[in-house]
Computed example of a mutant assay.
Amino acid sequence: MIEFLMPSLGADMEDATLIEWKKKPGDTVKHGDIIAEVETQKELIEIEIFEEGTIGELLIKEGTKIPVGTVMALINPREVTSETKKEEKIIESIPLQSIEEKIIESIDAPKVEDLSIKTAPLVEKISEDNDLSKITGTEPDETITKDEIENTQEIPIETEKQSSIAEAIRSEVVAAMSQSNREIPHYYLEKRIDMTNVLAWLQVANSKRSQKQRLLPIALLIKATAKSLLEFPDLNAIWDNGLQLKKDINIGFVVSLRTGGIIVPALHHVNIKSIDEIMDALNDIIPRARALRLQSSELSDSTITLTSIVDGGADTVFGVIYPPQVAIIGFGSISEQPFAENEMIGIRSCVSVTLAGDHRATDGLTGSRFLVSLNKHLQNPELL
């Protein structure tokens, strides 16, 4: 019999109230199914299950406040039959082509200037938070403007409950950041990275895509970050009575709330996602985060955090590590800057990248090599 426990959904969370069971005794469940909805101080959260089996008994009544770690339900594990083993063996025998190979094979590079979709520079960052698939210009080659994006936005009606939840989120962030400054010995590094190749590659890639399929710079930044973390796994970890490395790369992505404050949902398994899959995940999770409708794993599974600044904002952002993580990466605004290369000075599109690391887990040498690796991957966007 498997015990399903009330998970911890935040650094300072102690309990939550069970609002509704989504499953009943006798129901079959599998990894990722939603088993219940609970309410914390900050929002309603759907709780996922990570086992396979049949619901045996629900031990907690709806409306009950549950401390973290309490047994909520008993689950009969899935029986492994000879047929199951046969199916698993067949699946294991299927060769998988790497995501990188599929991306490389799909590239048929037309000229950079041969574009049918254009966006104003400001829109490039605004669109990171919005779905451009609903926006069309009056002419095929017309530049999409900021006004066109804003005119298509659905304005949410803010309720008193949403306001109180947002205020609770701000309070939790303040508590976590205070804990971080008290307990974590930070070190900070910064590197300027030339983004010209990335932006040129995006122009070529987007010229062959519909507006709904457009890629944005942030998707490549996230993918490059994941590839560099594979080389420096000590940064993809938590500190809990010592360094604990994480196998999965779940990048927490900072999302600003319309009511003020931030929330940091996790993008799961970024290391095995393609750039298109990362873009789809962003388009899905950002509106749900702003509506405060995230699942429990999306709030608790981050192994490292990434924060970015929109165009026209600050050139550099220095993050504060969110405990128990051991690093946070910051991307400033992409802007045109003087850039020296091969004894020549030119104007290039650059971004300032920062790393804040926990000195108990890593040191400046590891952090510096990570930033060098990140730069290497961004100079070869076709390999991402």
Rank of each mutant, 00 (worst) to 15 (best):
M1C: 06
E3S: 14
F4E: 00
L9Q: 04
A11E: 08
T17C: 11
L18R: 05
L18F: 04
K23Q: 11
T28L: 11
K30M: 01
E39Y: 04
L44F: 13
L44G: 01
E52N: 11
G53F: 10
T54P: 04
G56K: 11
L59G: 08
I60Q: 02
I66W: 02
P77M: 07
R78Y: 04
R78S: 09
E83A: 14
E83T: 12
T84H: 13
K85I: 10
K85R: 14
E88H: 03
L96T: 04
K102A: 09
I103K: 08
E105S: 11
S106H: 08
D108L: 15
K111M: 02
V112S: 12
L115R: 15
I117Q: 07
K118Q: 06
P121H: 06
S127R: 07
E128P: 04
N130H: 10
D131K: 09
L132T: 00
S133M: 10
G137E: 06
G137C: 09
G137P: 03
E139T: 09
E148K: 13
Q153A: 10
I165G: 05
E172W: 00
E172Y: 00
V174Y: 02
V174I: 15
A176E: 02
A176D: 02
Q179E: 14
E183P: 03
E183W: 03
P185Q: 08
L189F: 03
L189I: 08
M195E: 06
N197Q: 05
V204I: 15
A205Q: 14
N206R: 10
K208N: 14
Q211C: 05
Q211I: 15
K212A: 14
A219R: 03
I222H: 01
I222A: 01
L230E: 14
P233G: 05
A237N: 03
N241Q: 10
G242Q: 10
L243H: 10
L245R: 15
L245T: 13
K246Q: 14
I249Q: 06
I251S: 02
F253V: 09
L257V: 10
G260D: 01
G261T: 05
G261A: 06
I262F: 10
L267F: 05
N271V: 09
D276P: 01
D276F: 15
A281T: 13
A281G: 11
N283K: 15
D284W: 12
D284E: 13
R288K: 14
A289P: 00
S296A: 15
E298Y: 02
L299E: 00
S300G: 02
S300T: 03
T303N: 02
T307P: 01
T307Q: 00
V310K: 10
D315E: 14
G319I: 03
Q325I: 00
I328L: 05
I328T: 05
G330H: 10
G330T: 09
F331Y: 11
I334P: 03
S335G: 04
E336G: 08
P338M: 01
E343L: 12
S349A: 14
C350P: 12
T354A: 06
L355R: 07
A361S: 11
D363V: 09
G364M: 05
G364I: 10
G364P: 06
G364V: 07
T366I: 15
T366C: 13
S368K: 06
F370S: 08
F370V: 05
V372W: 00
L374V: 07
K376Q: 15
K376A: 15
K376L: 12
P381H: 12
